[in-house]
């Protein structure tokens, strides 16, 4: 029996076959969105090591594990709710629920159980501010973004991007027990990075989102407006990426890398805005999408290297 019918219609009254037999461990790992988790681990690590307090490696490892499992759990809840549209989009139709490898209720239970464990563990291991932020992040991604914003407004990923921006702030809070200007700067980098990153993807996957009825910017406001907004957000991203350097939180190495990488991203965003015809238009969007991932990785890699390696050795 399939749990998927049409958009917004779900057959949840009875258990499906997949609910009763369950999937293989790899299917449950896929529910956690491992690629998103890897970014969460990395950015949370940056928040943890950049904090001006020493964290015991075992406590740091446990905190990172809890944050990543919490992020994975919110991914499982997202896949549970979005199973109807996931079955329509080519990008997502092989996911465990639409492909029938895991039942919807199984995924819901899995997501809720892991969320509870992750929040409780982070609270016990570090502090309840960090645990509260993790709980809010899961709620924000699963309820505010997935259930409300995603199907309602083309600004879905602008506001929903906050969910992806919280991990470094949670890492910082896990280490210090507080929220400060430095952690807000790390949050802002991911928050303002999200729109150009996802809209670049939406430009060359707009057919997919359109068929699924998801109001992404290109489907609602058109490709031209999306290209302009990508450029404007990329422009705004330059000072935001430099802000850790401006406030004296990061050193010169970070400033140079952030400036060069932000300008490369801005140049690619300019090409997306300019190349509106022919084969180049999709190529530019794909290049921006790929580079945006590298851009974020570079910034947080420098933060991890500077605070985790260079400063302890007295080299920065």
């Amino acid at each position: 029996m399939s749990d998927v019918t049409a958009i917004g219609q779900r057959q949840d009254a009875t258990l499906g076959a997949a609910d009763m037999v369950g999937g293989a461990p790899a299917d449950y790992v896929a529910l956690l969105k491992p690629r998103v988790m890897s970014l969460v681990i990395f950015t949370a690590l940056a928040g943890l090591v950049a904090a001006p307090v020493h964290v015991h490696p075992v406590i740091g490892f446990a905190a990172l594990l809890a944050i990543s499992v919490g992020a994975g759990a919110s991914g499982a809840l997202n896949m549970w709710y979005d199973r109807d549209i996931d079955a329509i989009m080519t990008r997502t139709r092989a996911r465990p629920i639409p492909s029938g490898r895991i039942g919807a209720r199984e995924a819901l239970g899995f997501g809720l159980t892991l969320s509870t464990f992750a929040v409780f563990t982070l609270g016990v291991v570090t502090n309840w501010l960090a645990a509260g932020l993790l709980a809010f992040t899961i709620f924000f991604y699963a309820v505010v973004y997935t259930m409300w914003l995603k199907r309602w407004t083309p600004q879905n990923i602008v506001i929903g991007g906050a969910a992806g921006a919280f991990p470094p702030m949670i890492g910082w809070a896990a280490a210090t027990g507080s929220i400060s200007l430095e952690s807000v700067a790390l949050f802002s980098i991911i928050f303002f990075w999200t729109p150009p990153h996802f809209w670049a993807l939406a430009l060359f996957k707009s057919g997919d989102y359109g068929r699924a009825g998801v109001p992404m910017m290109p489907n609602v406001k058109g490709a031209a407006r999306t290209r302009l907004e990508i450029f404007l957000y990329s422009l705004l991203l330059v000072p935001v990426c430099l802000s850790p350097w401006f406030i004296g939180f990061e050193g010169r190495a970070y400033g140079v890398v952030a400036l060069v990488s932000s300008l490369v991203m801005l140049a690619l965003a300019f090409r997306v805005w300019r190349d509106t015809e022919g084969r180049d238009k999709d190529k530019a969007a794909k290049q921006l999408f790929a580079y945006s991932i590298l851009h974020l990785f570079l910034l947080f890699a420098v933060i991890v290297a500077e605070h985790g390696i260079l400063r302890p050795l007295g080299l920065a």
Binding site: V21, G22, G23, A24, P25, Y28
Partner: peptide, 12 residues
């Protein structure tokens, strides 16, 4: 195949 998946789940 389902029995194998269940066994793998139990181990995991």
């Amino acid at each position: 195949a389902q029995l194998k998946a269940r066994r793998q789940r139990n181990i995991a």
